[in-house]
């Protein structure tokens, strides 16, 4: 995978595959994070959303993401869209469930304190509930990014024609175990780095909870 392009079918392609996979993980994860935190807040805060939306999520959640592959290919084709969809869907569940739990668990006392200090009702969510739920949200995000790397490989093996997952599957046909192992280690390293980035962000955001 390293070395000059064309020396072997895999030479010089590492960066392209790794960049493709990373790009898909990033887009899928951002979609999952945005929708997961938003819907998680609604479920955790509004009774109506909890009654209506939560059962749907709990029914969809046990369905393995691989089961969605045919569906994704039919709707999004053998293109990035399929990978975005599968990754976003998979990473969405841990994020939404954790966010909802964090939001619902906002200490009642802090809500009272904020109301006593004259908070405008619509500011309660951004200024009290969301910060209080942050430790949960970060747990959800970390679980989500881990799943995103699992799913990018699944998506690339089955629904897209580039990336580390594709390279792995392709190498499998030629029994190039060395390439497969290289791709596996690459996913491991990239997954570790993305988790590290999230951890550092979390540590900064949650600096108030040090030693808690």
């Amino acid at each position: 995978m390293f070395g000059p392009v064309g020396a072997t079918p895999y030479s010089g392609t590492w960066f392209m595959h790794a960049a493709n996979s990373s790009y898909r993980v990033l887009v899928g994860f951002l979609l999952a994070a945005a929708s997961g935190v938003l819907i998680g807040c609604l479920i955790g805060w509004f009774r109506l959303a909890s009654d209506l939306v939560d059962p749907v999520i709990q029914i969809l959640r046990p369905i393995p993401i691989t089961a969605w592959v045919p569906f994704a290919v039919i709707f999004f084709g053998i293109r990035d869209g399929s990978a975005f969809f599968l990754i976003a869907l998979g990473a969405f569940f841990p994020i939404v469930v954790n966010t909802a739990a964090g939001v619902a668990g906002t200490p009642k006392l802090l809500v009272r304190a904020a109301r006593m200090l004259g908070i405008r009702p619509h500011m309660l969510l951004p200024r009290v509930v969301l910060p209080a739920a942050m430790p949960f949200i970060f747990t959800g995000l970390r679980l989500g990014i881990g799943l995103a790397w699992v799913l990018v490989i699944v998506a690339e093996m089955m629904a897209v024609k580039s990336g580390l997952g594709f390279a792995m599957w392709d190498a499998y046909y030629f029994l190039r175990l060395d390439i497969i192992i290289a791709a596996m280690l690459s996913v491991g390293a990239l997954g570790f780095l993305s988790d590290l980035a999230l951890r550092l962000m979390g540590r900064w955001t949650l600096r108030w909870s040090r030693g808690l």
């Binding site: 802090l110 009272r112 304190a113 904020a114 006593m116 200090l117 004259g118 910060p131 108030w208 808690l212």
Partner: peptide, 30 residues
Amino acid sequence: PGPDRGVVFQEYALFPWLTVEQNIEFGLRE
């Protein structure tokens, strides 16, 4: 409830993610 009736709770009820200054500033900012 409202800021004309300030409440001090036994369990403090400070916002843990805000500094001392930001906690005190909370009502004024709101």
